[in-house]
Amino acid sequence: MSNYFKVLRPGINSTFQDLGRFHLQHLGIVASGCMDRLSFSISNKLVGNKISEGALEFAYQGPLLEFVGESKMIAVSGKVNFNIIDKNEEKKKGTPNQSFKISDGEKIDILSTIDSVYGYISISGGFKLNEFKGSVSTLIKAKIGPNKGEKLHIDDKIFFNKSNLLVKEKFIQFDFDKDNTIRAMKGLQFDYFSNKSKEDFFSNEFEITRLTDRMGMRLEGGKIENQVSKNIKSEGITKGSIQVPGDGKPIILLSDHPTIGGYPKIANIITADYDKLVQKKPGTKIKFKLVDLLVAEEAFNQYIQKIKNI
């Protein structure tokens, strides 16, 4: 009997992701990968997968999926409002970060993320996905990745890998960091900006605007004045760089960022605070705190330990 999910509603931006595809940025192909590595790891851990297994990422409103086949363990991670609908259309509220068994004819309806942006669905054994250069991460813009590099569509069928795993139901206690302070290091062009703007950047509040997606996050706040040059020679970009175009409004470059950019960069988000940042919704006010490399590396050690310990 063939096992699969039928997509009854795709959701706003549902894509398959893993930890990213590497060694291709020189051809203009960005790593992509899950936005929130901690939540992504939790959903895999809950169903007994290796924590780098490809999962289904959704943003805000997720998919409505009908399960066909023999029962499997499944988990939804993040802060998510979702229902499990049985064969008789009876609705039961689902518990995120808790694995559960799904059976033939049942549906899972991801209604919305709560005070956050991204959530993940994992199934025991993993989804059956086509790899591109060793990864199942999707880059919609370039149509790279599983599902022909596209978002989920209505009526798509999602198949699973075989698994004989006997996984027990499991719950992982988890909440997002409510703190709105994001730690950052000085960017490559930090000294392009006026002294006042450098101070403003690390003391003003910035609001996350609706022009935010997997590629980047546009911020509104005081204008960051540039006194050297509004342009630089285009150069390679790393995830979490904060560039400031001529209009003085910072843009944080996220997982599907362009591989090269020509605007000066005032700062770089530290890796340990990236998950926390991307889960903040438009309208949230954030502040940046300047830290040095040693602090960032120490914070990373704690962050990666937390992921290992889930």
């Binding site: 020679k233 390679g236 790393t238």
Partner: peptide, 12 residues
Amino acid sequence: NYTPSYNKLIIN
């Protein structure tokens, strides 16, 4: 990753 540009190489 290793990304060359006009005058820089960025390594991740």
